[in-house]
Simulated scan of single mutants.
Amino acid sequence: MRPRNNSLKQVKEFPSLRDITVSTEEGHNHFYSSECHTGFIEYRLWTMRRFLSPSKRKYKNTGSAKFGRGQESAHYSGEELLGSKDLEEKKMWMKHTVPKDIHKREIVNCLKSTFPNRRQWILSKHPSVTEIFNEYPRLADYEGEMIELEFSTLHQENASKFLARFGAFYAPRIQGMVKAERPDIIRKLADADITDDNLKAIIMLAELMPPANSKVKQPNKKEGTDVTSTISDKQKDSICIVQPYMLCVQSETEMKYGLVADGKLVCFEEAGALNAFDKLFKLHYVCNLEFSKSLSSFYNFGESYLCDVTDVKPRSFNVSLNAAISHIKL
């Protein structure tokens, strides 16, 4: 009981450390959780205990959570599947239909009707992003609207939470925390010439993550407008699989954003940085992709607090960070 009592004393002595997002356990559970016998301090010391033999450990692991989209069943059974003939006809129609406004409603209806078959195929066969977009090319059209539609089918109650919460609540508080407590992050971003406050806050949030999980590259500026060669060069220079990422193209008058996945570019003519990142996050769910391991804590924060994905449990560090951000006074 001593670790629990110590945790209770901490939040009683320093009320700003209390986790205000929960109504139970008096807000101390990120310092010590009786359920998993760990907390923020325990998390910081885990590297010291990992080398102990199982016989010397007080608590034994019963299994580890799988990062990424491992929660879904490999056999999607949400709706009735189309027969092979109907499915192939709809897929062929979409492949040969030009994505114009006049065809948009029909394309949306076609994607909805083929969703159960597509989901079962993605979960059971684990195709690459390229294979998914080749099979269903209209998913990459209409400036990411079809990605939004697909995610809404999977998580209707969470579809708009990120856009509603981040800019209004989290972005100003993250910037306030960084300005007050992390001048090193301010110096890192000084030369990046980022004018969008939401994009700046997203990068700051990634930088606030634990060192082992915050290998975040600063925006890489490249002169010229040859976007195709830029994407191709990144694919060639990488020694491993390139995770989906945001691409920012800056002109003299404006900044445009897009997503790149497996070398495939999804352009956004009017969307801002926040909207582009929202679609980047949702693309991982739509294509059943694991998040980058170096950014797993960052995405865990997004799943837990920015989007409220119900089957994702926040890590102890993120519970503490969220409590600290929530107490920032503007």
Results as ranks from 00 to 15, higher is better:
residue 275 N to H: 12
residue 323 A to R: 12
residue 251 S to I: 07
residue 132 I to P: 15
residue 142 Y to M: 03
residue 56 K to S: 12
residue 326 S to E: 01
residue 169 F to I: 11
residue 175 Q to N: 10
residue 152 S to K: 14
residue 230 T to I: 10
residue 296 S to W: 01
residue 204 M to N: 06
residue 123 L to H: 13
residue 226 D to A: 02
residue 80 E to L: 10
residue 117 N to M: 03
residue 241 I to K: 15
residue 8 L to I: 13
residue 202 I to S: 00
residue 233 D to Q: 07
residue 307 C to A: 15
residue 270 E to S: 14
residue 275 N to W: 10
residue 99 P to I: 05
residue 11 V to R: 01
residue 170 Y to E: 12
residue 185 I to E: 07
residue 33 S to F: 01
residue 85 K to P: 06
residue 27 G to R: 02
residue 218 Q to H: 06
residue 165 R to W: 04
residue 14 F to I: 07
residue 112 K to Q: 01
residue 99 P to N: 05
residue 134 N to W: 00
residue 318 N to L: 06
residue 123 L to V: 10
residue 199 L to T: 00
residue 137 P to F: 08
residue 143 E to R: 04
residue 204 M to P: 05
residue 249 V to Q: 13
residue 325 I to A: 02
residue 330 L to Y: 11
residue 148 E to L: 02
residue 79 E to P: 03
residue 170 Y to T: 12
residue 64 S to I: 07
residue 34 S to V: 15
residue 9 K to I: 15
residue 186 I to G: 11
residue 140 A to S: 14
residue 284 H to L: 01
residue 110 C to H: 03
residue 124 S to W: 02
residue 246 M to E: 10
residue 293 K to Y: 10
residue 273 A to K: 00
residue 29 N to V: 00
residue 318 N to I: 03
residue 210 P to D: 06
residue 207 E to W: 11
residue 34 S to T: 15
residue 291 F to N: 04
residue 40 F to E: 05
residue 169 F to D: 09
residue 62 T to I: 05
residue 98 V to Y: 13
residue 66 K to G: 09
residue 25 E to P: 02
residue 162 F to Y: 12
residue 289 L to M: 15
residue 190 A to V: 02
residue 36 C to K: 05
residue 47 T to N: 11
residue 35 E to K: 05
residue 90 K to A: 11
residue 300 N to A: 07
residue 299 Y to E: 05
residue 40 F to G: 05
residue 127 P to H: 03
residue 234 K to A: 09
residue 129 V to K: 10
residue 239 I to P: 09
residue 211 P to K: 15
residue 156 Q to I: 10
residue 44 R to E: 08
residue 114 T to D: 05
residue 289 L to R: 14
residue 105 R to N: 07
residue 250 Q to N: 14
residue 207 E to T: 10
residue 247 L to I: 12
residue 205 L to K: 00
residue 262 D to E: 11
residue 324 A to H: 08
residue 72 E to G: 10
residue 199 L to A: 00
residue 159 A to F: 08
residue 45 L to E: 08
residue 255 M to H: 14
residue 68 G to H: 02
residue 258 G to A: 09
residue 242 V to C: 15
residue 47 T to A: 09
residue 10 Q to Y: 15
residue 228 T to M: 14
residue 124 S to M: 05
residue 304 S to D: 08
residue 17 L to K: 08
residue 228 T to S: 15
residue 148 E to Y: 04
residue 210 P to N: 06
residue 140 A to N: 11
residue 53 S to L: 02
residue 132 I to D: 15
residue 11 V to K: 01
residue 142 Y to A: 03
residue 286 V to W: 02
residue 117 N to P: 00
residue 261 A to E: 13
residue 62 T to E: 07
residue 6 N to C: 14
residue 287 C to M: 03
residue 96 H to W: 08
residue 202 I to H: 04
residue 206 A to C: 01
residue 249 V to F: 13
residue 78 G to I: 02
residue 19 D to F: 13
residue 259 L to A: 05
residue 134 N to V: 01
residue 236 K to A: 09
residue 200 K to F: 10
residue 159 A to Y: 08
residue 273 A to I: 00
residue 237 D to K: 13
residue 182 R to D: 05
residue 300 N to L: 04
